[in-house]
Simulated scan of single mutants.
Amino acid sequence: MSLIAVGACYVDTILTTPHYPGEDDKLRATSISRRRGGNCPNSLEVLQQLVAETPANLQFPLNLVAILPARSSVASQQIRTAFEPHVSLDHCLYREEFEEPASSYIMKSQASGSRTIVNYNELPEMTLEEFGRIVDGLKGPAAWFHFEGRIPDVTLSCIRHLRNRFPDTKVSVEVEKPGREGLQELVEEADVVFYSKTWAQHNGYNSANECVQKQLSLTRKASLLCCTWGQDGAAALETSTRNLVHSPAYCPAGFQVVDTIGAGDTFIAGMLYGLICKKKGWDLSQKLSMANHLAGTKVAQEGFAGLGRVLREYCTT
Rank of each mutant, 00 (worst) to 15 (best):
G149L: 12
K26F: 03
I159T: 04
S114K: 09
G274T: 09
M126R: 13
R309D: 08
R28T: 12
P124M: 09
T16E: 06
Y195V: 11
L272C: 06
Q110W: 05
Q201T: 13
N57I: 06
G233D: 00
L307F: 03
L58R: 14
L183Y: 14
H202L: 01
G7L: 04
K214L: 13
H293Y: 07
T54P: 02
R28P: 01
L183V: 14
I117V: 11
K26Y: 04
L275N: 10
A102E: 10
A56T: 07
G149Q: 12
E313V: 00
T16V: 03
T54R: 02
V171N: 08
P69N: 09
K214H: 14
E148G: 10
R71F: 03
N243Q: 13
H146A: 08
V299T: 04
L186V: 13
S73R: 11
I159N: 03
G37A: 09
S73W: 13
S43C: 05
A234E: 04
A82E: 07
V310C: 07
E210P: 11
P61K: 02
K108W: 06
M1K: 15
A5M: 10
A75K: 04
N119R: 07
C92H: 00
P21G: 02
W144Q: 13
E129G: 01
E129K: 10
K170S: 14
L44G: 03
N57K: 12
K279G: 08
T30F: 01
C315H: 02
K287D: 05
A291D: 01
D191V: 04
S73A: 12
Y94E: 00
L138Y: 08
D24E: 11
K279F: 05
V11Y: 12
S103C: 07
G204D: 04
V299N: 03
G137T: 08
A222C: 13
K279A: 12
R150A: 14
T54H: 02
L138V: 07
R150Y: 14
G230E: 09
R80C: 05
G281Y: 13
R312Y: 00
G281D: 15
A200N: 09
S240T: 15
S112K: 09
A52Y: 00
E185R: 06
P178D: 06
V257H: 07
L138F: 11
P18E: 02
V257A: 12
E84G: 00
L58C: 07
S2I: 10
T241K: 13
Q215Y: 14
P18G: 02
F166N: 13
S172Q: 11
Q78N: 07
A111Q: 08
L64V: 03
E176V: 08
A291C: 02
D168M: 14
L156T: 03
P152Y: 06
V187N: 14
Q48W: 06
M107T: 13
T81Q: 09
A29V: 03
S240D: 15
L218F: 15
A29S: 15
T54L: 05
I79W: 01
E122V: 12
V87N: 00
P167V: 12
M290A: 06
P152D: 05
L93E: 04
I32P: 00
G303P: 10
L244K: 11
R28M: 10
K139L: 07
V154E: 12
S196V: 11
L47T: 13
N119L: 04
T30Q: 13
